[in-house]
Every structure is written in C-alpha cells, then in structure tokens.
Design a protein around this nucleic acid. Structure first.
Lengths: 328, 328
DNA sequence: CTGAAAGCGCTAACAG
DNA sequence: CTGTTAGCGCTTTCAG
C-alpha cells in the first residue's frame, strides 16, 4: 500500500500528530519539523485527501454546474472560477447539464455527497423555480441566471438594460422593424426579452419575437425562416452568442450580408463576431468578472453564512461594429 | 450534523452493514431492502463520498489536466471527457496549467493526493520529457501530445501527415513560398513542424519557420512581422487554432485578405474559420473522438494494468475553403 | 442473508 | 510544544 502519516511518523521518530501539525503548518519545534520534512521527502509521502476530508469536514472542493462548457460564455467563466479556486487551494468539479433538469438534479445531489464547499451554478428556469424547495448544505451562487427572488447569491448581467441598449442603438440608426430571436430556457433570455419588448414599445415599435433552444443549430433553423419571410425585418437581435452564431450561419447560407440586407446584433463578444464580414455589433459581457465575483460571493458567504443574499449586477458594454451601420 | 448510514440503520431497524449493502446493490432480502429504502427517503440520507472513498479505496474521480480550457480544442475535449465520465459514474476535476511546468507538477501532485482513478493529460514538452522519472499510482493517458516513447497510453493526431497534407494542398494550388508559424511548447507543434519541413523539402521548397507561444496575441505579433516583410510569403500555415486566430487578426489589422494577398491555412476547424471572409482552409481534428478514445484507453488500462502502452493515432481531415484558392 | 467489529488515513481534543 | 486517544462515515471481513 501507499505510505501514510504513520510511516512518516515512524521514520521521523515522532508521533503521527506531529506530522499532521507540520503538514498543517502549526507550531512545531524547528528541529522536529525538519526531521519530519525530510522523512516526508524520503518516504515520498502524499496526504490522502479523502481521509483528510472525512476527518476535517472540509472538502476544499467547489462544484461548477453549467449547461455546456462549450458555450464560450461558460468556457471563460469556468476558467475564471478555476483560477480563483486554484488561488484558494480548492479543486473544481466540472458538471455539464445540457439544460437538462434531470441531469441538473443528479449533479446537485452529487454535490451533496461530495460535501462540497460551495457551488457555482447556472440553472435552467425549470430547476431555478424549485430552488427554494431544495435545501442544500452548502452555499450556492447563481451565475448568469437567477432563481427565486432574494433566496440565493447571484451574479448576473443587467440584461434588460443591455437588451434595451441594443434596441436603442438600432433605432437611433434608423431601423424600425427590429425582430428578436430569444432562448427559451433561462431567466436571462426572459430578461433580455422584456428589455427588448419594453424598449420597442417605448418607441412605438411592434415587437417581433421568436423562441428557440439556445444552440446554433436550432437557431439557424428558425433564422432561416425569419430571413426568408417576405416581410423580413430590417434588423435582427439574438439573445445570446449561440443564437447569434446560428443567425450568422443562416445568413451565410442564404447569401445575406449585414448591414446591407439587414442589420444584426446580439450578445457575447466572441472572437468570430469581430472577424466575420465587417464585424457584428454585440453586447460584451464581463465574463471573467462574473466568474470572479461569483467566487468572491461564495467565499464571503462561507465567512458570513447569515448575511442576506446579494445580487451582483454587472453591465454589458455595447461594441459597435458594421453589422448595424446606418443604411444610406 | 448530517444524517449518516447509522441513522438510516436505526430508522430501518437493521444494521449499518445492511444499509451499505442496499446502497451497493448487494443481495438483501426484498423486505429489508424496502425498509431501508424508505428509511433513506425519510431521513434524506446522502452518502458521504469521502468516507466511502477512504474505506473502499476507489475515488471515482478522473483528473483532466490541460493547458487552457479556453482553447477550443480542449473545450471540446473536456466535454467529451466529462460525458464519458458521467456515463461511468465518475467526476472530473478540471485543471488548467497555462503550459506552466510548475503548475503542471502541482496539479499532478494533487492528483496523487486525490488518489484519482486516472488522469487525462496534455503535457508541455518540458514536463513530458520527465514523465518517465515520475511514477504515478494511477494510469495517465496523454492526449494531443505524447511523452517518452512507449511509456504511456496516448491519443494523438497524425500531425506530420496532417501538416504535410497542408503543404501538399498549397503546393498543388501553385503556392511555392509557404511559411509556417509554429507553437513552441508541445510535441504536437514539433511534429507539425517536421511534417511541414519534410513536405517542403520533398518538393524542393525552402522551409520558412517562426515560433511563438501558442496564443493568439503572441501569434498576432509575429504574424504582423511576417506579413510586413517585403519578401512576404504567398502562403502561411498556422500550427494550431490559436495561432491561426492570431494570424487572422493581424491580417485584418493590416487589411490583407486571403487568398488575394496570401493564402492561409491552419489547424482546428473552429466555427469562425468557416465564417471569416470566404472561409479558411483547415485541418479538422476529431476532437470528441480523441476525448472518448482517451477515456476508453483509461478504462481499459484500469482493467488490464499490465497491457503494453498503446498509442492511438487519429487522422485529421482537410477542409478546403477559399483562403487557399488558386490564384488566377 | 444479516450483524458485529474492525479499520481506511487522517485531525482534533485532551493531557502531559 | 508533543504524544495519546478517539473517531470522522463508511465498507468489508468474519461469524452466525
């Protein structure tokens, strides 16, 4: 078997407790400490984290539950989370749910069994709605999406404002028939929808909305329909980066170009949005900030469990590119 | 404290051992099983995985160590790994190394302490070279890159062939001054370099190579220089998707277009490569396959520890797009 | 098929 | 400051 703390203790001529203290950086007479340290080196001892966790009741593990790590938003988020975890000497367990409530529940249960220190979680609306029924033994910080009001810490974008900014931007450039293609699974999509709808109505414009599963393929299918209608809108807004991508693909297939054939704008400043055609206008989200803030909320929650839940709302930034240029 | 197996046992009027047997799906008289199951439901019992691991010596955890999850190659890989892990009832701990050997060593050590079931690992060349010195208590499957010959299971692309295919493709279209921009940290970059070099020499062409850290910014800096030289090549090959992206950005800044100003080709069929300009010619890697294969090798290694190490080599697929169109 | 008992490897009281 | 002792929650002999 592998070498344990007991073997080290024997090799160093001390008690197991002393070895444990050296490991935990507690006060130990320098001479003993040295002896223990060389014994550790000689024996090649590696602490067994399962044992440590069982005894200490600290898992030093955080769970990251996202729909799909391949969504660039969550890719960047996960990196920010891992960085913060690394600095705090914690590990990250990665969970993809595919927006599938049963997979969500399953992973949430796993987190319980892991006795994780905390969870960063982007829930579907379906699961989010039940979030106050469930009772976790660990803090949960919601990201990108929120749950029942005032129940959980969360970090979200100011989605209504951002969405409205897109409408305002298009309106100012002379576009009037502005359609929106929205996701149908998250609180975020819904907020972007309301921001859009209100901004349209304020300007006396008629909202034109469609809804899709938030992935490029599904979005492309619907985008093709929208773009082929004879009353094609003169501008189209996508409620996230995946949907925007679907629209871009549909446009390419149909040989349509922005802004000549219609204006296009959306969310998430992914690399390709700056590279495609003459550039796509988007709302950039401070994704890394969102991740870091979530981890900060998590750590503060652990420090002060009784604190009232907090919502951190960050602002998006409009990146103007040529896809929404005024038509002359 | 939280409810343990003992509480369930009392509630069900059986011994802890019986509860454990029910959990492990061992033979238990149906009646008792039922009593235990309702007791579990009533008490809201959740097994403590740390305790289970400590006792059973199975961690059901696999480590995924990659340079940066934001590299789309590793994003997709991680998803494939997580899927396979999910199906096998295992968790995945995500580790980003930033191609930093000390962070690699640190995470490798962590994997030891976690007593992981196995590790999927994309090492830097530096660490890979020492991989036979290190001795792990768990199987390691190398992905995308390999280590000392015949020491570890690995799954890699046929990089030399793929690189040569790019040269061949460009040569067939009349390009002669074909430069290459290569990464400098991995065995993969080195193989792509040799594939390129040999293919060039076979055709009596002079290789022109530059080397960069494999990230877009570093690549863009060097690409700007290459593209500004008065003896600018008529074709430029990138050794991976990140470098290709840097080249694309540099070209955009300099107002250069492919294939008019020069041909461009590279690796990794990322979404943006099909969307930018009239499309970039790339070698597509079967990334998900690589991930699944790696997990398969890992599981087979666990089954049969003494089996000789295997290398799975997969082929890339040339996606021809307009960036390498023949100039008329 | 079930229960009693031991112990995985470690940390945390508690003495000294 | 250090050692002894107990036990975290579970699985796994070993008896019955």
């Amino acid at each position: 078997m592998s070498v344990g703390i007991k073997d080290v203790a024997v090799a160093a001529g001390v008690s197991p407790a002393t070895v444990s203290r050296v490991l935990a950086n507690h006060h130990v007479k320098p001479e003993l400490r040295e002896r223990v340290e060389t014994a550790i080196r000689l024996t090649g001892y590696r602490p067994n984290l399962s044992a440590r966790r069982l005894r200490s009741q600290h898992s030093n593990t955080i769970g990251l539950i996202v729909p799909d790590i391949r969504n660039p938003f969550f890719t960047t988020l996960s990196r920010a989370v891992e960085d913060a975890a690394y600095k705090a000497n914690m590990r990250v367990v990665l969970c993809n749910t595919d927006e599938n409530p049963s997979r969500e529940t399953m992973y949430l249960r796993l987190m319980q069994e892991e006795r994780v220190t905390g969870v960063i979680y982007a829930p579907t609306r379906e699961t989010a709605a039940q979030l106050d029924r469930l009772n976790f033994d660990f803090p949960v910080v919601l990201v990108d999406r929120y749950g029942p009001a005032g129940k959980h810490d969360s970090v979200v974008l100011d989605n209504r404002q951002a969405s409205a900014a897109l409408v305002e931007h298009l309106h100012a450039r002379g576009f009037r028939s502005i359609a929106g293609l929205f996701g149908n699974t998250s609180s975020t999509a819904r907020d972007r929808l309301s921001g859009y709808t209100e901004a349209m109505q304020e300007r006396g414009l008629k909202p034109r909305t469609d809804f899709v599963a938030p992935n490029p393929d599904a979005a492309a299918v619907v985008a093709r329909q929208i773009l082929s209608r004879k009353d094609r809108p003169d501008a189209l807004i996508a409620s996230n980066g995946l949907i925007l991508l679907g629209i871009a693909q549909a446009m390419q297939e149909l040989g349509l170009r922005a802004p000549d054939d219609l204006a296009v704008a959306g969310f998430d400043n992914e690399i390709w949005t700056g590279l495609i055609g003459s550039g796509l206008t988007v709302i950039e989200q401070p994704v890394a900030d969102i991740g870091h803030s979530a981890m900060r909320l998590l750590f503060e929650r652990i420090e002060t469990p009784e604190m009232a839940p907090r919502v951190v709302m960050l602002s998006g930034k409009l990146i103007e590119r040529n896809s929404t240029r005024r038509l002359s």
